[in-house]
Design a protein around this nucleic acid. Sequence first.
DNA 1: TAGATTGTTAATCGATTAACAATC
DNA 2: TAGATTGTTAATCGATTAACAATC
Lengths: 209, 209
Amino acid sequence: MKKQHVSHAVIRRLPRYYRRLTNMRDAGIERVSSTKLAESLGLTASQIRQDLSCFGEFGQQGYGYNVEALRAEIATILGVDRGYNAIIMGAGRLGQALMYNFNFAAHGFNLLAAFEGDTEMVGTEITGIPVYHHSKLEEFAAEHPIHMAVLTVPQPVAVETADRLVALGVKGIWNFTHVKLVINDPTVQVEKIHFGDSLLALSYMMSEE
Amino acid sequence: MKKQHVSHAVIRRLPRYYRRLTNMRDAGIERVSSTKLAESLGLTASQIRQDLSCFGEFGQQGYGYNVEALRAEIATILGVDRGYNAIIMGAGRLGQALMYNFNFAAHGFNLLAAFEGDTEMVGTEITGIPVYHHSKLEEFAAEHPIHMAVLTVPQPVAVETADRLVALGVKGIWNFTHVKLVINDPTVQVEKIHFGDSLLALSYMMSEE
DNA sequence: TAGATTGTTAATCGATTAACAATC
DNA sequence: TAGATTGTTAATCGATTAACAATC
Protein backbone atom coordinates (compact mmCIF):
# COMPACT_ATOMS: atom_id res chain seq x y z
CA MET A 1 0.00 0.00 0.00
CA LYS A 2 2.89 2.37 0.69
CA LYS A 3 4.12 4.21 -2.37
CA GLN A 4 7.51 5.05 -0.96
CA HIS A 5 9.41 5.17 2.25
CA VAL A 6 7.58 7.36 4.70
CA SER A 7 9.68 9.00 7.37
CA HIS A 8 9.06 8.73 11.06
CA ALA A 9 8.43 12.47 11.20
CA VAL A 10 5.60 12.18 8.69
CA ILE A 11 4.02 9.25 10.52
CA ARG A 12 3.96 11.25 13.75
CA ARG A 13 2.25 14.17 12.02
CA LEU A 14 -0.50 12.12 10.38
CA PRO A 15 -2.43 11.58 13.62
CA ARG A 16 -2.39 15.31 14.21
CA TYR A 17 -3.80 15.96 10.75
CA TYR A 18 -6.44 13.35 11.38
CA ARG A 19 -7.39 14.85 14.70
CA ARG A 20 -7.62 18.37 13.35
CA LEU A 21 -9.64 17.29 10.33
CA THR A 22 -12.03 15.45 12.63
CA ASN A 23 -12.47 18.63 14.66
CA MET A 24 -13.11 20.62 11.50
CA ARG A 25 -15.61 18.13 10.20
CA ASP A 26 -17.43 18.12 13.53
CA ALA A 27 -17.49 21.91 13.38
CA GLY A 28 -19.20 21.64 10.00
CA ILE A 29 -16.25 22.89 7.94
CA GLU A 30 -16.37 21.53 4.40
CA ARG A 31 -13.14 22.60 2.76
CA VAL A 32 -9.69 23.62 3.87
CA SER A 33 -6.53 24.73 2.09
CA SER A 34 -3.07 23.54 3.05
CA THR A 35 -2.40 27.09 4.23
CA LYS A 36 -5.37 27.11 6.60
CA LEU A 37 -4.64 23.65 7.93
CA ALA A 38 -0.99 24.56 8.43
CA GLU A 39 -1.89 27.69 10.36
CA SER A 40 -4.14 25.82 12.71
CA LEU A 41 -1.41 23.28 13.40
CA GLY A 42 1.58 25.61 13.53
CA LEU A 43 3.20 24.06 10.47
CA THR A 44 3.92 25.26 6.93
CA ALA A 45 1.61 24.67 4.00
CA SER A 46 4.53 23.22 2.05
CA GLN A 47 5.11 20.60 4.68
CA ILE A 48 1.52 19.46 4.69
CA ARG A 49 1.41 19.18 0.90
CA GLN A 50 4.74 17.40 0.91
CA ASP A 51 3.57 14.98 3.61
CA LEU A 52 0.32 14.16 1.84
CA SER A 53 2.11 13.63 -1.46
CA CYS A 54 3.69 10.52 0.08
CA PHE A 55 0.31 8.85 -0.21
CA GLY A 56 -1.44 10.33 -3.21
CA GLU A 57 -3.18 13.38 -4.53
CA PHE A 58 -6.10 14.38 -2.38
CA GLY A 59 -6.58 18.04 -3.24
CA GLN A 60 -7.78 20.16 -6.09
CA GLN A 61 -6.09 23.24 -7.49
CA GLY A 62 -7.90 26.42 -6.68
CA TYR A 63 -10.10 24.69 -4.11
CA GLY A 64 -7.94 22.93 -1.56
CA TYR A 65 -9.12 19.78 0.20
CA ASN A 66 -12.54 18.49 1.07
CA VAL A 67 -12.32 18.04 4.82
CA GLU A 68 -14.38 14.87 5.04
CA ALA A 69 -12.70 13.26 2.03
CA LEU A 70 -9.19 14.04 3.25
CA ARG A 71 -10.10 12.81 6.70
CA ALA A 72 -11.31 9.54 5.21
CA GLU A 73 -8.11 9.16 3.18
CA ILE A 74 -5.95 9.66 6.24
CA ALA A 75 -8.15 7.24 8.19
CA THR A 76 -7.35 4.63 5.57
CA ILE A 77 -3.65 5.46 5.63
CA LEU A 78 -3.60 5.14 9.42
CA GLY A 79 -5.55 1.90 9.35
CA VAL A 80 -8.41 3.34 11.41
CA ASP A 81 -10.94 1.63 9.16
CA ARG A 82 -9.46 -1.84 9.40
CA GLY A 83 -11.60 -2.96 12.31
CA TYR A 84 -8.75 -4.11 14.50
CA ASN A 85 -9.70 -5.97 17.65
CA ALA A 86 -7.98 -5.04 20.88
CA ILE A 87 -7.69 -6.37 24.41
CA ILE A 88 -6.27 -4.94 27.59
CA MET A 89 -3.76 -7.02 29.50
CA GLY A 90 -3.89 -5.82 33.09
CA ALA A 91 -7.03 -4.14 34.41
CA GLY A 92 -5.27 -2.37 37.26
CA ARG A 93 -5.56 1.37 37.78
CA LEU A 94 -3.94 2.29 34.50
CA GLY A 95 -5.85 -0.30 32.49
CA GLN A 96 -9.09 0.86 34.05
CA ALA A 97 -8.23 4.49 33.46
CA LEU A 98 -7.92 3.69 29.77
CA MET A 99 -11.19 1.77 29.74
CA TYR A 100 -13.04 4.66 31.32
CA ASN A 101 -11.33 7.59 29.63
CA PHE A 102 -9.96 6.48 26.31
CA ASN A 103 -12.19 6.13 23.28
CA PHE A 104 -10.81 3.09 21.51
CA ALA A 105 -13.62 3.06 18.97
CA ALA A 106 -12.82 6.62 17.90
CA HIS A 107 -9.33 5.42 17.03
CA GLY A 108 -10.56 2.44 15.08
CA PHE A 109 -10.14 -0.30 17.65
CA ASN A 110 -12.83 -2.63 19.00
CA LEU A 111 -12.03 -3.31 22.62
CA LEU A 112 -13.18 -6.88 23.23
CA ALA A 113 -12.02 -7.78 26.71
CA ALA A 114 -9.60 -7.19 29.54
CA PHE A 115 -7.51 -9.78 31.35
CA GLU A 116 -6.46 -9.61 34.96
CA GLY A 117 -4.63 -11.60 37.64
CA ASP A 118 -6.22 -12.76 40.87
CA THR A 119 -8.31 -9.77 41.80
CA GLU A 120 -11.96 -9.17 42.45
CA MET A 121 -12.28 -7.55 39.03
CA VAL A 122 -12.27 -10.94 37.33
CA GLY A 123 -15.76 -11.93 36.26
CA THR A 124 -17.08 -8.37 36.28
CA GLU A 125 -17.51 -5.86 33.49
CA ILE A 126 -15.87 -2.44 33.30
CA THR A 127 -17.57 0.05 31.02
CA GLY A 128 -19.30 -2.92 29.44
CA ILE A 129 -16.06 -4.77 28.73
CA PRO A 130 -15.74 -8.22 30.32
CA VAL A 131 -12.76 -8.85 32.58
CA TYR A 132 -11.40 -12.40 32.45
CA HIS A 133 -8.69 -14.15 34.37
CA HIS A 134 -5.46 -13.95 32.43
CA SER A 135 -5.29 -17.74 32.21
CA LYS A 136 -8.26 -17.56 29.82
CA LEU A 137 -6.31 -15.52 27.27
CA GLU A 138 -5.41 -18.36 24.91
CA GLU A 139 -8.93 -19.78 25.06
CA PHE A 140 -10.38 -16.38 24.24
CA ALA A 141 -7.91 -15.79 21.41
CA ALA A 142 -8.88 -19.08 19.83
CA GLU A 143 -12.38 -17.70 19.32
CA HIS A 144 -11.61 -14.03 18.59
CA PRO A 145 -8.82 -12.72 16.43
CA ILE A 146 -6.79 -10.24 18.47
CA HIS A 147 -4.84 -7.66 16.51
CA MET A 148 -3.61 -5.40 19.25
CA ALA A 149 -3.03 -5.62 22.98
CA VAL A 150 -2.64 -2.87 25.53
CA LEU A 151 0.07 -3.84 27.99
CA THR A 152 -0.76 -2.45 31.42
CA VAL A 153 0.34 -5.39 33.56
CA PRO A 154 2.73 -5.04 36.51
CA GLN A 155 6.40 -4.81 35.49
CA PRO A 156 7.40 -8.29 36.65
CA VAL A 157 5.06 -10.06 34.24
CA ALA A 158 5.45 -7.67 31.31
CA VAL A 159 7.90 -9.77 29.31
CA GLU A 160 6.10 -13.09 29.75
CA THR A 161 2.78 -11.46 28.91
CA ALA A 162 4.24 -9.94 25.76
CA ASP A 163 5.62 -13.34 24.75
CA ARG A 164 2.20 -14.91 25.15
CA LEU A 165 0.65 -12.18 23.01
CA VAL A 166 3.22 -12.62 20.27
CA ALA A 167 2.65 -16.38 20.33
CA LEU A 168 -1.03 -15.70 19.75
CA GLY A 169 -0.24 -13.69 16.64
CA VAL A 170 -0.96 -10.21 17.95
CA LYS A 171 0.31 -7.60 15.47
CA GLY A 172 0.68 -4.62 17.76
CA ILE A 173 1.49 -4.02 21.41
CA TRP A 174 0.79 -0.70 23.06
CA ASN A 175 3.30 -0.83 25.87
CA PHE A 176 2.56 1.22 28.98
CA THR A 177 5.02 -0.65 31.18
CA HIS A 178 8.52 0.68 31.67
CA VAL A 179 9.93 -2.62 30.53
CA LYS A 180 11.81 -2.78 27.26
CA LEU A 181 10.29 -5.51 25.12
CA VAL A 182 12.51 -7.47 22.77
CA ILE A 183 10.28 -9.11 20.19
CA ASN A 184 11.83 -11.47 17.69
CA ASP A 185 8.93 -11.38 15.26
CA PRO A 186 9.57 -8.34 13.01
CA THR A 187 5.90 -8.19 12.00
CA VAL A 188 4.91 -7.27 15.56
CA GLN A 189 4.91 -3.53 16.14
CA VAL A 190 5.51 -2.10 19.58
CA GLU A 191 4.56 1.44 20.51
CA LYS A 192 5.75 2.58 23.88
CA ILE A 193 4.33 5.31 26.06
CA HIS A 194 7.24 6.36 28.20
CA PHE A 195 6.03 8.58 31.00
CA GLY A 196 9.50 9.00 32.45
CA ASP A 197 11.12 10.32 29.27
CA SER A 198 8.24 12.71 28.82
CA LEU A 199 8.55 14.08 32.35
CA LEU A 200 12.31 14.48 32.05
CA ALA A 201 11.89 16.44 28.83
CA LEU A 202 9.47 18.70 30.71
CA SER A 203 11.97 19.02 33.55
CA TYR A 204 14.62 20.08 31.04
CA MET A 205 12.35 22.71 29.50
CA MET A 206 11.48 24.05 32.96
CA SER A 207 15.17 24.32 33.78
CA GLU A 208 16.31 26.17 30.69
CA GLU A 209 18.13 29.50 31.09
CA MET B 1 23.14 27.55 31.59
CA LYS B 2 22.68 26.52 27.97
CA LYS B 3 25.76 26.96 25.84
CA GLN B 4 23.95 26.99 22.54
CA HIS B 5 20.68 26.16 20.96
CA VAL B 6 19.84 22.55 21.69
CA SER B 7 17.57 20.84 19.22
CA HIS B 8 14.36 19.07 20.09
CA ALA B 9 15.87 15.80 18.90
CA VAL B 10 18.71 16.08 21.38
CA ILE B 11 16.37 16.93 24.24
CA ARG B 12 14.33 13.82 23.54
CA ARG B 13 17.44 11.64 23.59
CA LEU B 14 18.80 12.95 26.88
CA PRO B 15 16.24 11.11 29.01
CA ARG B 16 17.16 7.88 27.25
CA TYR B 17 20.84 8.43 28.00
CA TYR B 18 19.97 9.16 31.59
CA ARG B 19 17.86 6.05 31.89
CA ARG B 20 20.49 3.81 30.37
CA LEU B 21 23.27 5.27 32.50
CA THR B 22 21.14 4.73 35.59
CA ASN B 23 20.70 1.07 34.60
CA MET B 24 24.44 0.73 34.06
CA ARG B 25 25.28 2.32 37.35
CA ASP B 26 22.81 0.07 39.15
CA ALA B 27 24.45 -2.88 37.41
CA GLY B 28 27.78 -1.76 38.87
CA ILE B 29 29.30 -0.62 35.57
CA GLU B 30 31.93 2.07 36.12
CA ARG B 31 32.93 3.24 32.68
CA VAL B 32 31.46 3.28 29.22
CA SER B 33 32.62 4.48 25.81
CA SER B 34 30.42 6.33 23.39
CA THR B 35 30.58 3.23 21.18
CA LYS B 36 29.27 0.93 23.92
CA LEU B 37 26.56 3.34 24.98
CA ALA B 38 25.52 3.83 21.37
CA GLU B 39 25.30 0.09 20.78
CA SER B 40 23.07 -0.41 23.78
CA LEU B 41 20.74 2.35 22.59
CA GLY B 42 20.76 1.61 18.87
CA LEU B 43 22.44 4.91 17.99
CA THR B 44 25.82 5.90 16.62
CA ALA B 45 28.79 6.85 18.77
CA SER B 46 29.16 10.05 16.77
CA GLN B 47 25.67 11.11 17.63
CA ILE B 48 26.17 10.61 21.34
CA ARG B 49 29.43 12.55 21.37
CA GLN B 50 27.85 15.28 19.27
CA ASP B 51 24.84 15.46 21.59
CA LEU B 52 26.92 15.66 24.74
CA SER B 53 29.14 18.33 23.23
CA CYS B 54 26.16 20.68 23.39
CA PHE B 55 26.65 20.81 27.13
CA GLY B 56 30.32 20.35 27.83
CA GLU B 57 33.18 17.87 27.85
CA PHE B 58 32.42 14.93 30.05
CA GLY B 59 34.73 12.25 28.71
CA GLN B 60 38.37 11.44 28.64
CA GLN B 61 40.38 10.33 25.62
CA GLY B 62 41.40 6.72 25.74
CA TYR B 63 39.02 6.02 28.62
CA GLY B 64 35.51 7.04 27.72
CA TYR B 65 33.04 8.26 30.32
CA ASN B 66 32.66 7.53 33.99
CA VAL B 67 29.11 6.22 34.22
CA GLU B 68 28.22 7.82 37.53
CA ALA B 69 29.81 11.16 36.63
CA LEU B 70 28.11 11.35 33.26
CA ARG B 71 24.81 10.35 34.81
CA ALA B 72 25.18 13.16 37.35
CA GLU B 73 25.98 15.67 34.60
CA ILE B 74 22.91 14.69 32.62
CA ALA B 75 20.81 14.82 35.79
CA THR B 76 21.90 18.43 36.17
CA ILE B 77 21.21 19.20 32.53
CA LEU B 78 17.72 17.70 32.83
CA GLY B 79 17.04 19.52 36.08
CA VAL B 80 16.53 16.31 38.02
CA ASP B 81 18.51 17.72 40.93
CA ARG B 82 16.54 20.94 41.27
CA GLY B 83 14.11 19.63 43.85
CA TYR B 84 10.98 20.64 41.99
CA ASN B 85 7.72 20.27 43.86
CA ALA B 86 4.78 18.70 42.10
CA ILE B 87 1.07 18.23 42.65
CA ILE B 88 -1.56 16.16 40.90
CA MET B 89 -4.72 17.90 39.76
CA GLY B 90 -7.36 15.22 39.49
CA ALA B 91 -7.05 12.04 41.55
CA GLY B 92 -9.34 9.98 39.35
CA ARG B 93 -8.27 6.67 37.89
CA LEU B 94 -5.43 8.12 35.84
CA GLY B 95 -4.17 10.36 38.61
CA GLN B 96 -4.26 7.44 41.03
CA ALA B 97 -2.54 5.18 38.53
CA LEU B 98 0.34 7.66 38.42
CA MET B 99 0.46 7.92 42.19
CA TYR B 100 0.69 4.16 42.57
CA ASN B 101 2.87 3.30 39.61
CA PHE B 102 5.02 6.26 38.73
CA ASN B 103 8.13 7.07 40.69
CA PHE B 104 8.14 10.86 40.82
CA ALA B 105 11.12 10.97 43.17
CA ALA B 106 13.25 8.95 40.73
CA HIS B 107 12.62 11.68 38.17
CA GLY B 108 13.51 14.46 40.54
CA PHE B 109 10.05 15.60 41.61
CA ASN B 110 8.64 15.77 45.13
CA LEU B 111 4.98 14.93 44.95
CA LEU B 112 3.35 17.02 47.65
CA ALA B 113 -0.38 16.56 47.24
CA ALA B 114 -3.27 15.72 45.00
CA PHE B 115 -6.44 17.75 44.46
CA GLU B 116 -9.83 16.33 43.65
CA GLY B 117 -13.44 17.38 43.11
CA ASP B 118 -16.35 16.18 45.23
CA THR B 119 -15.45 12.55 45.72
CA GLU B 120 -14.83 10.34 48.71
CA MET B 121 -11.08 10.52 48.03
CA VAL B 122 -10.90 14.01 49.52
CA GLY B 123 -9.44 13.92 53.00
CA THR B 124 -7.71 10.58 52.50
CA GLU B 125 -4.16 9.73 51.57
CA ILE B 126 -3.09 7.75 48.52
CA THR B 127 0.35 6.18 48.72
CA GLY B 128 1.03 8.58 51.55
CA ILE B 129 0.08 11.65 49.52
CA PRO B 130 -2.78 13.76 50.93
CA VAL B 131 -5.79 14.38 48.73
CA TYR B 132 -7.41 17.80 49.17
CA HIS B 133 -10.50 19.35 47.71
CA HIS B 134 -9.55 21.36 44.66
CA SER B 135 -10.89 24.53 46.27
CA LYS B 136 -7.93 24.34 48.66
CA LEU B 137 -5.39 24.68 45.86
CA GLU B 138 -4.66 28.39 46.27
CA GLU B 139 -4.43 28.07 50.03
CA PHE B 140 -1.99 25.18 49.66
CA ALA B 141 0.09 27.00 47.08
CA ALA B 142 0.46 29.98 49.41
CA GLU B 143 2.37 27.75 51.79
CA HIS B 144 4.23 25.48 49.39
CA PRO B 145 5.93 26.54 46.19
CA ILE B 146 4.56 24.42 43.35
CA HIS B 147 6.80 24.06 40.31
CA MET B 148 4.93 21.46 38.31
CA ALA B 149 1.41 20.12 38.11
CA VAL B 150 0.13 16.90 36.61
CA LEU B 151 -3.13 17.58 34.82
CA THR B 152 -5.40 14.55 35.08
CA VAL B 153 -8.72 16.30 35.60
CA PRO B 154 -11.82 15.58 33.50
CA GLN B 155 -11.78 17.31 30.09
CA PRO B 156 -14.43 19.94 30.90
CA VAL B 157 -12.38 21.55 33.65
CA ALA B 158 -8.96 21.17 32.03
CA VAL B 159 -8.67 24.74 30.75
CA GLU B 160 -9.88 26.45 33.89
CA THR B 161 -7.64 24.26 36.02
CA ALA B 162 -4.64 25.10 33.85
CA ASP B 163 -5.44 28.80 34.18
CA ARG B 164 -5.52 28.53 37.96
CA LEU B 165 -2.16 26.76 37.92
CA VAL B 166 -0.58 29.39 35.72
CA ALA B 167 -1.95 32.11 37.98
CA LEU B 168 -0.21 30.41 40.88
CA GLY B 169 3.12 30.57 39.07
CA VAL B 170 3.51 26.93 38.16
CA LYS B 171 6.39 26.52 35.68
CA GLY B 172 5.42 23.22 34.09
CA ILE B 173 2.23 21.36 33.28
CA TRP B 174 2.25 17.67 32.45
CA ASN B 175 -0.93 17.45 30.44
CA PHE B 176 -2.69 14.08 30.31
CA THR B 177 -5.99 15.50 29.12
CA HIS B 178 -6.82 15.59 25.45
CA VAL B 179 -7.48 19.28 25.68
CA LYS B 180 -5.14 21.69 23.94
CA LEU B 181 -3.92 24.26 26.43
CA VAL B 182 -3.20 27.77 25.27
CA ILE B 183 -0.97 29.39 27.84
CA ASN B 184 -0.09 33.05 27.46
CA ASP B 185 2.83 32.98 29.83
CA PRO B 186 5.84 31.89 27.73
CA THR B 187 7.75 30.78 30.83
CA VAL B 188 5.24 28.00 31.48
CA GLN B 189 6.18 24.76 29.76
CA VAL B 190 3.53 22.26 28.75
CA GLU B 191 4.36 18.64 27.98
CA LYS B 192 1.53 16.63 26.58
CA ILE B 193 1.04 12.88 26.68
CA HIS B 194 -1.21 12.20 23.73
CA PHE B 195 -2.47 8.65 23.91
CA GLY B 196 -4.50 8.99 20.73
CA ASP B 197 -1.62 10.07 18.52
CA SER B 198 0.48 7.26 19.90
CA LEU B 199 -2.19 4.66 19.19
CA LEU B 200 -2.75 5.95 15.66
CA ALA B 201 0.96 5.73 14.95
CA LEU B 202 0.82 2.12 16.13
CA SER B 203 -2.19 1.52 13.93
CA TYR B 204 -0.27 2.88 10.96
CA MET B 205 2.71 0.65 11.63
CA MET B 206 0.42 -2.37 11.99
CA SER B 207 -1.17 -1.54 8.65
CA GLU B 208 1.98 -1.09 6.60
CA GLU B 209 2.45 -3.19 3.45
C1' DT C 1 54.93 3.85 24.75
C1' DA C 2 50.87 1.97 22.10
C1' DG C 3 46.04 1.61 22.04
C1' DA C 4 41.86 3.66 22.84
C1' DT C 5 38.70 7.10 22.64
C1' DT C 6 37.47 11.73 23.02
C1' DG C 7 35.72 16.44 21.05
C1' DT C 8 35.33 18.72 16.89
C1' DT C 9 35.50 19.76 12.07
C1' DA C 10 34.01 18.41 7.59
C1' DA C 11 31.00 15.60 4.65
C1' DT C 12 26.77 13.54 3.94
C1' DC C 13 22.23 12.78 4.30
C1' DG C 14 17.45 13.81 4.95
C1' DA C 15 13.80 16.86 6.02
C1' DT C 16 11.76 21.35 5.52
C1' DT C 17 10.80 25.36 2.92
C1' DA C 18 10.34 28.05 -1.25
C1' DA C 19 9.04 28.59 -5.85
C1' DC C 20 6.23 27.80 -9.73
C1' DA C 21 3.97 25.58 -13.65
C1' DA C 22 -0.37 23.29 -14.00
C1' DT C 23 -5.13 23.68 -13.56
C1' DC C 24 -9.51 23.82 -11.12
C1' DT D 1 -11.87 34.50 -17.27
C1' DA D 2 -9.14 35.65 -12.99
C1' DG D 3 -7.91 34.06 -8.58
C1' DA D 4 -6.68 30.42 -5.80
C1' DT D 5 -4.31 26.55 -4.66
C1' DT D 6 -2.51 22.23 -5.74
C1' DG D 7 1.55 18.74 -6.50
C1' DT D 8 6.24 18.74 -7.45
C1' DT D 9 10.85 20.27 -8.34
C1' DA D 10 14.64 22.86 -6.63
C1' DA D 11 16.92 25.29 -2.80
C1' DT D 12 17.85 25.59 1.87
C1' DC D 13 18.44 24.24 6.23
C1' DG D 14 19.53 21.23 9.98
C1' DA D 15 20.74 16.88 11.82
C1' DT D 16 23.45 12.77 11.48
C1' DT D 17 27.59 10.44 10.30
C1' DA D 18 32.44 10.09 9.21
C1' DA D 19 37.06 11.32 9.87
C1' DC D 20 40.89 12.64 12.50
C1' DA D 21 44.07 15.37 15.33
C1' DA D 22 44.60 15.64 20.20
C1' DT D 23 45.65 13.25 24.23
C1' DC D 24 44.71 10.28 28.17
